[in-house]
């Protein structure tokens, strides 16, 4: 009876057990974790900035301050109508909406709590003025004209702080992009040096393989296969850890987001990108391992 052969598809290089690969597994998981967090951060800030822009740009808020000892509701209505009419007559204005008492209560709830009667408080009347799309509205001129007919009213121009917020968002995104590039660069260098170390560890086996007629490509493909597995498995671990951290952060931010941050959403394309990170890590690890081996072996034998 013929002796059955056990190991037909073995790799000549015992890469699975060497220290350099254990290091690479850990580093890849950490790098993918950091990359995922930075990428998710980038996409979140992008989404938040878009929400702000969509929700606030093209609008302005008008405050009509209560006058001291102001109790005559008819007088108050007259003053209010005067301001409403002023804005409705502006060619650039699309609509003017009076913020109701209920809406005001909701706006104040983060500061005053849920069950507070705000009717007794001297709060201003608020108008939500929507401008026509692309309309050229001169805030300063309108504010000046409004001051002349209704000195008790003032325009709150969102664009000033919206631009500041968008500048901040843009800075955070630039920072996130820098982190992404840095993580990518550190990842590639780590793979490169881990592969070089591993080539040193297995120098004798590689020499034997060369003497047996192995081309550099034969050896590089063994490293590339290992690189793919490390990228995929460690990448999946890193991504899973990042998604857990991200979920926790998102969950915590929900309370804060009411009225301040807007919704914290990532598009379906963004989720797809995040979930595909292990695959990208595997491809990067494969290509870098292969290249590192070819580059290093050129100097040997």
């Amino acid at each position: 009876m013929q002796n059955k052969i056990k190991l037909n598809h073995v790799s000549e290089l015992p890469l699975k057990k060497d220290q350099a690969n254990l290091f690479l597994e850990a580093v890849t998981a950490v790098m993918v974790f950091l990359f995922s967090i930075a990428l998710a951060g980038y996409m979140l800030v992008d989404s938040m900035a878009k929400n702000w822009q969509n929700g606030i740009s093209g609008t302005l808020t008008v405050q009509i301050m209560p006058l001291p000892g102001d109790t005559d509701s008819q007088e108050k209505s007259l003053r209010l109508n005067k301001v409403i009419t002023f804005f409705e007559n502006q060619p650039a204005v699309e609509s003017v909406i009076l913020i109701s008492e209920t809406q005001k209560e909701r706006l104040m709830s983060p500061w005053l709590g849920q069950d507070v009667d705000i009717s007794a408080l001297p709060l201003p009347e608020l108008l939500d003025v929507h401008l026509k799309q692309g309309a050229d509205f001169d805030y300063e001129k309108a504010a000046q004209a409004l001051k002349e007919i209704a000195p008790f009213a003032s325009i709150d121009n969102h664009n000033v702080w919206l631009h500041r917020l968008l500048d901040l968002a843009s800075s955070i995104q630039t920072l996130a992009l820098s982190v992404l590039w840095m993580v990518l660069a550190v990842g590639v260098f780590s793979i490169f040096y881990a592969v070089c170390t591993s080539l040193g560890i297995h120098g004798q086996i590689i020499e034997i393989l060369h003497i047996m007629g192995a081309k550099d490509d034969y050896i590089a493909r063994q490293y590339a296969r290992r690189g793919f597995l490390i990228g995929l498995i460690s990448g999946a671990i890193g991504t899973a850890a990042a998604l857990s951290a991200f979920w926790w952060l998102h969950h915590s931010a929900v309370y804060l987001s009411a009225g301040l941050l807007g919704s914290l959403d990532i598009s379906s394309g963004g989720w797809l990108l995040l979930l595909s990170l292990p695959l990208w890590a595997a491809l990067l690890s494969t290509a870098t391992s292969y290249w590192a081996v070819r580059r290093t072996l050129r100097k040997i034998m």
């Binding site: 056990k6 004798q204 393989l209 047996m212 192995a214």
Partner: peptide, 20 residues
């Protein structure tokens, strides 16, 4: 000898054919 000590006798002898 310079055999690949972690491999079987079969796999060692097969190396020159595998690299081809």
């Amino acid at each position: 000898f310079r055999l690949l000590e972690h491999l079987s006798a079969y796999d060692n002898v097969a190396v020159p054919l595998k690299v081809r």
